[in-house]
Structure formats: structure tokens, C-alpha cells
Design a protein around this nucleic acid. Sequence first.
DNA 1: GTCTATACCGTGATAGAC
DNA 2: GTCTATCACGGTATAGAC
Lengths: 206, 206
Amino acid sequence: MTDRPRSRPKTRIQRRNSEAILEAALDVFSAQGFRGATLDQIAQAAGLSKPNLLYYFPSKEAIHIELLNGLLDVWLAPLRALDPAGDPRDEIIGYMRRKLEMSREMPRESRLFANEMLQGAPHMGATLSTELRTLVDDKAGVIRGWSEAGRIAAVDPYHLIFSIWALTQHYADFDVQVRAVLGAGRDPYDEAGPFLDRLFERLLAR
Amino acid sequence: MTDRPRSRPKTRIQRRNSEAILEAALDVFSAQGFRGATLDQIAQAAGLSKPNLLYYFPSKEAIHIELLNGLLDVWLAPLRALDPAGDPRDEIIGYMRRKLEMSREMPRESRLFANEMLQGAPHMGATLSTELRTLVDDKAGVIRGWSEAGRIAAVDPYHLIFSIWALTQHYADFDVQVRAVLGAGRDPYDEAGPFLDRLFERLLAR
DNA sequence: GTCTATACCGTGATAGAC
DNA sequence: GTCTATCACGGTATAGAC
């Protein structure tokens, strides 16, 4: 049983190469999907040979899982940051804005998750029903409390969260379509911000 | 140059097999993506041998393109049906409801398109900038007219259409996630209908 | 501890018998 | 018009040299 560098990166070169691989894999997986990506593409983008790449990760699937798990925390951070003690309207619209900003700054990550969801989440299924669900249940409770206290309008908190996900991720995941429709001169995100502000302000207004 | 059955299906068996192939391909492509799907899977689902399948379609890509093109009309029909002479609120919310119904009844088609968009629309790129854009420009003009006439609130018509796409397709494309969060007992679509009704009613209210 | 050469398999597509 | 057999390729993964 050899100690794979993955388990606990030690040398500088190991760290460096592992990170280069994950960065390259994010590029390729998000653009081509899991099956569409090839180790050759990832290896080339990482500046390594294909067999050398497989020295750092045991398999293509292992790279994919590592990416998904590593990204999940980043992805859910904005929702975690929703503060029960804050102003309801500011918290919800602020959350939406952070998600929109993430679509703009991290479209590859958005597409990686979208690909995984479309395939039925073969590598994340368990996490969805446990970690994600727990978090959403928690925050939905907060939002429900705000509704019942009359601080925002009465809305289903779960579908409110879904609508934030759908509306913000759409601009990353369907980027081609959005840009094809808007044309070259317009910036989708600059326009989406104010539009979504107004949408949620009206939805939440008492 | 042999006359391929695809060009103009003649015999009953040719029609039958071609349709079986497209139906099977929709199943497999929507679940696995283009690269993830194999001709073996499609052939088996269609009840044919792999070489026999390739007698009806020249290549895997040809099947995919045929599917996408054939579906586009169905997919855009609800937007085409948006009636400039109708009541603005009824037309827009009716459009949203038809799209939501399509997510419920045709989730495979929704995922097929989502997969294609995520990959950057390699097989549809041209259509987006022409046919789709023309249609959206047209309907956006109608909606803008309603806004300017004061019949609905002033909203960006393009992002209004995007928001309808995003919110309705989300329930089909992210089905696993939605069901994982809601749990087994709840029906996502039954709940989404009233939620989205209210959302758009508030958005459009003067 | 890192990379080169290579094995092996699944996939898309073809040739030719029936 | 359909099937069996097969090819060539690209893919993942391993063995072994440096």
C-alpha cells in the first residue's frame, strides 16, 4: 500500500501539481461534462503527461469527486451566511446578489454542478439529502419565521430559495443562450442585478 | 449513392424504427449527455442492433441534431403563442404556466436542451442567434409595448422572459436537488404553480 | 518520488453475408 | 433491409525505467 500524494500532499511539487490538475479539471469538466472530458485534455491543460496525472489521482472519477466536494462549501457559503439576526429584506436580497456574483465570477463551478444535477447527481446524491437538505431546512425556518412575524410577505421559503438558485445560476449555465438573445453589446449581469433586485423586492414586500 | 430512409421515410417499418430510435435517443441523451450516451444504449432501448441503428442514421451526431431540431418547435411553441391582443397579465402568467407544465410533462426534453446549452450549444449555436433571437425580440417588443402603455409594470422584457425560462426549467433540470430538499412527500410542481403565479403577479402589478 | 512506454478495453463506424 | 463479424481509434489504467 503506497502512500498516494492525494491523501496528504507533502512536497511543494505535489501540492503544486495537484492544484494544477484540479484547476485544469474544473475547466474541462465544466465545459464538456464528466463523460465528455478526457484525461488527455486535463493532463495537457495541467501541463502534465496523462500517466503522470494518474499518479496524483487514482482515476478520472476521483478527480471529479474531489472537485465537487471541495466546491460544495464555497457554493453554499452564501446561504450559510444568511443571518437570522439581520434585516429580512437585506438578507434575502443580499443572498441573491452574492449568488449572482458567484455566477459571474465562477461560471465554471456553476456549470460543473449543473452537469452533475442533470445526470441525477451520481457523485453527490447522498450529500443532497443530508448536508444540503439540513442547511436549507434551517434557513427555510428562518425565512418562515420572518414571514410569520409579518416582516416580509408570506411566501413558501423553499421555493423562494429555489427561485434564487434558478434565477442566478441561469445566467452562468445558459450563458450562450442569454448572450445570443441579448446580442454582443449588452452585459447580462449588469442588467440582471437591478432586474432581480426589483423582482425580489416586490415578491417580499408586505 | 443509396437513398437513406432518413431523408423521406417510406415504408411503415422505416417510420416505426426511426421513431423508436429518436424516442430511445431522447431517453439516453437527456440522461447521460451527448458524450455520455453510447450507440449501444440507444440501440438496445430501441430494440435494434447497433449496426442496424446506423442504417437509419449516419452517425451519433446526426441523431442528436435531428432530436434538437425536431424539439425546438415544440419547445418554443408556448412563447409563440403569447398573444399581443390578449390581456397582458393573463398572457405572461399563462406562458409561465405552460412552460411549467412542459417541465413537468417533458423533463427529458428540458434536460436535453440544458445539456446542449451547458456545452455551449455546439449543435444549435446558429439557431440561437437567428430563429430564437428573432422570436424573443418580437415578443419582447410586445411586452415592452404593454409596459409603455401602463398595462403592466415597467420591467425589462428580456430578463422577464429569462426569468420564466429559469424558474420553470429549474424544476425539470435540477429535479434531483429539488426532490432531495423537499423530501418524498411533497410534489414540487404542485407547489411551484401557486408560488410562481404570485411571484409574477407581484412583479407585473402596476 | 516522478515520468515513459505500453496494455487493455469500450466505442463509433464499416464490410459483407444473409 | 437486417444482422454478424470486425476494424481503427481513443480512452482509462498499469508496469516498470529513471
